[in-house]
Simulated assay, not measured.
Amino acid sequence: MPPPALRNSATWLERLFEDESETVRQPVVRHREEVLDTRYLDQERIYAGASPNPAEARPRTQVVLGGRPVFRADRHKPPFLVLTAAQARQVAGFLAMADFDALWDFARDELLPRYGGVTGEPEAWHAFASAHQELRAFYARTAEYGDAVVKSLPA
């Protein structure tokens, strides 16, 4: 979303994510939404691994679960996560340069048991690689527009 449209209000963000009407969403959302499936924590694992270069650590950890929390009134619900436009550009740069195979190699031993083991690796690799490409495209478009990112995680 364009940074000037962003509000630092959990109530406003809840209304934005819960209201499907175009009158609320259209002025602030440029129709570039990315929805991770229920295995988003496993997707996070791809990026949360140890970085060989400490300078890469911050954008790497912001891809899925990163961002400044905006806490909801109902503390049992996860907070919204907000990345500034500058942070979104850093993530886009990281993803543009990231070697998915290297990321996969680091996380595969932890992930494979949940996805059919070694025999299920081709399908698991493909699913995670596809999600990686979608995230790469999302952040590239977001950076191109100079937009911020708001994340709403399932409760």
Rank of each mutant, 00 (worst) to 15 (best):
Y139V: 05
E34K: 07
E14W: 02
H76N: 14
E56V: 00
M1G: 11
A96E: 15
W125T: 09
L83N: 01
P79M: 02
A124V: 02
G66M: 05
V150L: 03
P4G: 09
A140Y: 13
A124W: 08
L135G: 08
D74E: 13
E110Q: 13
E123Q: 14
A86D: 09
A155S: 15
A155E: 13
L153R: 05
R89Y: 03
A5E: 09
E110D: 15
R68M: 05
A48C: 07
R7G: 05
P2H: 04
F17K: 02
R89E: 08
P69Q: 05
E18Y: 10
A131F: 03
V70N: 01
V28N: 07
P79Q: 05
A10R: 00
A50H: 13
T38G: 15
A129N: 06
G93T: 10
E123I: 06
D105E: 14
L135T: 08
A137W: 10
R60F: 07
P59Q: 07
R32C: 03
S51V: 07
D37G: 12
E134S: 13
V35H: 11
H132Y: 11
L111R: 03
R32Y: 05
Y139T: 03
D99Q: 15
L111Y: 02
E14M: 03
I46C: 02
E44R: 13
V64S: 01
D101N: 13
P78S: 14
Y115H: 14
E20G: 10
Q90T: 11
L6H: 00
H126Q: 15
V82A: 03
P2L: 01
F100S: 06
L81F: 06
G93W: 08
A57M: 11
A129C: 01
F17N: 01
P79L: 05
F100Y: 13
E44V: 04
P59E: 04
M97G: 14
F128Q: 08
I46T: 03
L95S: 12
W104R: 03
E121S: 03
A57W: 08
Y47A: 02
F17E: 03
A85F: 02
A107C: 09
G93E: 11
R25L: 08
V28G: 07
V70Y: 03
A102T: 12
A129Y: 02
V91R: 08
R15V: 03
A48M: 13
P52G: 15
A5Y: 04
F71N: 08
A127Q: 13
L36T: 07
A5S: 11
R68F: 01
E144H: 14
Y145C: 10
Y139C: 08
Y145I: 06
R108K: 15
A5Q: 09
A10Y: 03
R30I: 07
A5D: 02
A127N: 10
W104C: 07
L6R: 01
Q26H: 07
T142G: 01
A98H: 10
A131C: 12
T23H: 12
E144F: 12
L41G: 10
S51P: 00
D147E: 13
T119N: 04
L41E: 09
A85P: 01
A86W: 00
G67Y: 04
W104L: 07
V35D: 08
L16S: 04
A143W: 07
Q43S: 10
N8D: 11
R141Y: 11
A148W: 01
L153C: 07
D37N: 12
E20M: 06
R141Q: 15
Q43P: 00
R136Y: 02
Q87Y: 00
E34C: 12
